[in-house]
Amino acid sequence: MPDNTAPVIEVREVTKTYPGPPPLTVLQPTSLKIMPGDQVAILGPSGSGKSTLLSILGILDDPTSGNVFVDGIDVTSLAEKQRSAIRAAWIGFVFQQFHLIPTQSAVQNVSNGLLYSGVTYRERNRRAKEALTAVGLGHRLTHRPGQMSGGEQQRVAIARALVREPAVLFADEPTGALDSATGEAIVGLLAGVADRGTAVVVVTHNEEIASRFRRIIRLHDGVATEAYRGTDNKSDATAVIEAAA
C-alpha cells in the first residue's frame, strides 16, 4: 500500500522558461506539495503563470528546471510512455472549454476517461453511467454535447475526469465559459470531490471562486505565495511555498 502521508504530487524548485529571443521566464522557482484530499486554488491574473504551473503539476509539460514527484516517484526523468501511464491512472483534468468530443454521447465521452487505462468496454460503459449519475446527469446519458447546456457539458467533463477515480483532479478555469450561477454549482461539485479523498486543484482568476477552497496559492509574474488561512491544519502543515525574489 502506498504511503498515505506522501504528497500525491510534489514539485521542487520548478521553473519554466520559454526559449526566446528573448527568453521568457513565466514561472520562478516554485515548490509545492499537494496532499490527498487537498483543496487548492491557484489564483492569479492572466499571464501570471498559473496555467504553466498547472501543466507542470499535471505532468503535461516539463519544467525547465526542478523536479516533479508523483506519489514519491521522481517523474521528471521518466519516459513519455510511463508519464502517459501516470496521467491515465493518477490524474484527472477539467478544462475551461470542456474538450468533449462533439460526435459522441455523454456516456461515450465519459468512458473515454478510462480508454487508456486498460478497462474493458463493458466496464467503461458501466462506470461512465455511474459517474454521470453522480454528477446529476443520469437523465442525459445519450445526449451529445451540442444538445446540452454549458453547465451540463462541464459536468460531463468532470464525470470524465472522476470516472477513473484519480488521486488528484486539476481544473483549469472550469467556470470560465459559464454564467455565474452555473459556475457556482460547478465549483460546489468540485469542492465536494475533495471530501471523497481526491485532491482538487483549481486554477482561476476569480477571487470568489478561490475563496471556496481551503488553500489559496497566489501567482503574480511567475512568483507563488500561499495565503495561509489558518483554519485548516492540514494545509498549514503541508504547504511549502518558496518564492524566489
Binding site: 500500500m1 502506498p2 498515505n4 510511463q82 501511464a85 491515465a88 491512472a89 487508456y116 477515480e165 481526491t198
Partner: peptide, 28 residues
Amino acid sequence: MNEASLNPRRDDLLRPRRLSFRDLLGTA
C-alpha cells in the same frame, strides 16, 4: 470510492496500459 482504488500500487502506476485493437478502431 475507497483508498485502495484511489491509489494504485507504485509499480502499477508506471505500467503502460494496452489499448485494445477494437478500442483503437473505435478512436479511428
